[in-house]
Nucleic acid binder design. Structure first.
Lengths: 357, 357
DNA sequence: CTCGGGCGTTGAAGCGCTTCGACATCTGTC
DNA sequence: GACAGATGTCGAAGCGCTTCAACGCCCGAG
């Protein structure tokens, strides 16, 4: 492996000069710079990551902690992960992939070993075990998801309450007065991942305000589960004309079943989904949906965590005036991305009431 | 941060002793070992990753290169990634997540910087651009997927040819004589990812042998695309009684459409899918399927790459007798996992011929 | 009692890089 | 023409760890 020293010799300068050319932390005359850069290219030099990390106590790596489960909202997770990796790389960082398998210990290990300069935690639950460790960790962290107590934490998430409100508002505006929510699997509510509850909260809030009746039923992604959920919904509330689906795995079966039941979408029943756009456009009836901005979430998480890393780096050297911005950058904050509803073919004017209410 | 020197002082031993306790590369008296271990625990010591990497030129990290695309077989990719991360961690390695965004350059960068000790490449195409770099790289690598030329390479993949044969054999045994293959999106074939072609090869091989007629049509995952594909299939080969689906996104729409067309599964038409078990069991009719052993693929890839890393490490010190096993461990090899077909509810005896051949 | 040889432990030399302070050299100024 | 201040470059001191050669010690054999 080519070392910096060899590059220096080849270019006829000292090692420190090469280092400064690389980092840009000191001004270098353009002649020297070009000579060094040529040597780097000719020798095919790549700085040694370990040595760099040791000398600078910066690894240029951020850790991304994924859930171990592969049963839920996989495409969203994957898209977030890819967005994180892509954005990080654009800024010169690499991404270390951690799974939940090690449990909260992983946080300690990664932070303690200086393997990563910062962390991004996905799939954060309301009372997440990792949070105490994150709070006392000297390294910055950003959560994707919203825990119960966000004090001292920085979080990014879709504004699911607003998402719920938006879905209901859209249906209400079309004249629907009885709607059903086909929710996530019961396990999701039990695990208190939060987003499902928040959606429901928004739904109920808007419903109360707009005079809409709501029925909520958790639902697994399997065909049978959707069938059961749907028949229970129509049993209990025959006048239901609008459905909000949160469990994206349930979407396919849902549309299929409605067709079998002879309920036309959107003539008899309107459907709004909370799902990635890609899913919404692949179905038999293009779905009116609120997109889950997975890419945006990943990107923002990286940007926030990066800002913190840089603030920390610049911190000790900062003058008085710098304290305020630094505090802002380092300080806790919760960023809820505004939901966006795209009207497609699955929602329409409510059918004329057939007698109910 | 606590350093090894502090642990040494606290335990009343030298730094090297602590290091040997940690690595186990020299015998340490149990008294000393326990004292050191206690100090480590009390001080909450975590070895610094950068320093370690620098001194030992081993980072204990393996790089996992994912495709940038998020449109295809996402759950499979995700499961492989998680299996890789989990298995690696069990063996004391961390996983660095790379995407295709940097292109083949990423291989050079990671290898050159000593960031990772080895690489695992996913979604390898027949003529993958990364292969030349991998071949000349001094670090071990394992591919998940099968390129056209496997010389000097180590690969893991499902035996897709056998998969194709297995599907056809199963249908043939049930008396089907005209079958259709609902393939991957045309883009997949154009990109030459290989697995789709290999499946088809197996299908054709078995079909020729068993006297079965095959019609292959590429197909996107969207409802409309599946509808078009299906109607073309039944137009061209009305006597088709068996379908092999390779594109897992097409499965939901396919079943839904067959129902609409009044073709009962499995009475009128049998369906075999190539997909994860989870997908096969969630559908309206539980699908007879060949599973994609994503977890197994990830695990094996790690095991193979790890064996190489260790062989390399032990290499230079090896004696004459060690050369043979080392060569085996380091040498190229292709490991095709045998497919396994699980019979569920979607396949059955072919209906009595209605006149066609 | 002496001596060879394990065994357990240590000191010291780096690994390849960053970074600080120092040192030339070159401007522009009074 | 001398001097303060940029500007560009360098030497050297680590960063925290691994590892090698060496050393002291105790044991058993002769």
């Amino acid at each position: 492996m080519v070392t910096l020293a060899e590059v220096a010799r080849h270019a006829g300068v000292s090692a420190s000069t090469v280092s400064y050319v690389l980092s840009g932390k000191r001004t270098i005359s353009s002649g020297t710079r070009e000579r060094v850069e040529r040597s780097i290219r000719e020798l095919g030099y790549h700085p040694n990551a370990g040595a760099r990390a040791l000398a600078s106590s910066k690894s240029n790596i951020i850790a991304l902690m994924m859930p171990l489960r592969t049963d839920m909202y996989v495409p969203v997770m994957m898209e977030i992960a890819i967005a994180v990796a892509t954005t990080a790389r654009e800024r010169g960082y690499d991404v270390l992939l951690l799974t939940g398998q090690e449990g909260p210990e992983a946080v300690r290990r990664v932070v303690g070993s200086g393997l990563a300069d910062a962390m991004i935690l996905m799939d954060v639950e309301l009372e997440d075990q990792r949070l105490p460790l994150v709070r006392e960790s000297p390294r910055p962290a950003v959560l994707i998801g919203l825990p119960a107590d966000t004090s001292e934490l920085t979080c990014v998430d879709l504004d699911f309450a607003a998402t719920g409100r938006l879905c209901v508002a859209h249906l209400a505006e079309l004249g629907h007065r009885e709607i059903a929510v086909v929710g996530e699997a019961a396990a999701v509510y039990q695990r208190h991942t939060g987003f499902a509850e928040r959606t429901l909260l928004g739904v109920r809030e808007a419903a109360a305000e707009l005079g809409v009746r709501v029925l909520h039923r958790p639902c697994e992604g399997s065909y049978e589960s959707v069938a059961g959920t749907l028949s229970r919904i129509f049993d209990e509330r025959p006048a239901t004309t609008g459905i909000v689906v949160q469990n994206e795995a349930a979407i396919g079966p849902l549309l299929s079943l409605l067709r079998q039941l002879g309920r036309a979408v959107p003539e008899d029943i309107s459907v709004v989904a909370v799902c990635p756009d890609q899913v919404a456009t692949q179905t038999s009836v293009a779905l009116t949906s609120v997109a889950i901005p997975a890419h945006e979430m990943g990107r923002r998480a990286v940007e926030l965590v990066m800002a913190k890393v840089e603030a920390r780096g610049a911190g000790p050297a900062g003058n008085g005036a710098a304290t305020a911005p630094q505090a802002t950058a380092t300080g806790a904050c919760t960023e809820l991305l505004p939901p966006q509803l795209t009207v497609r073919a699955s929602t329409g004017q409510a059918p004329a009431p057939t007698g109910a209410q």
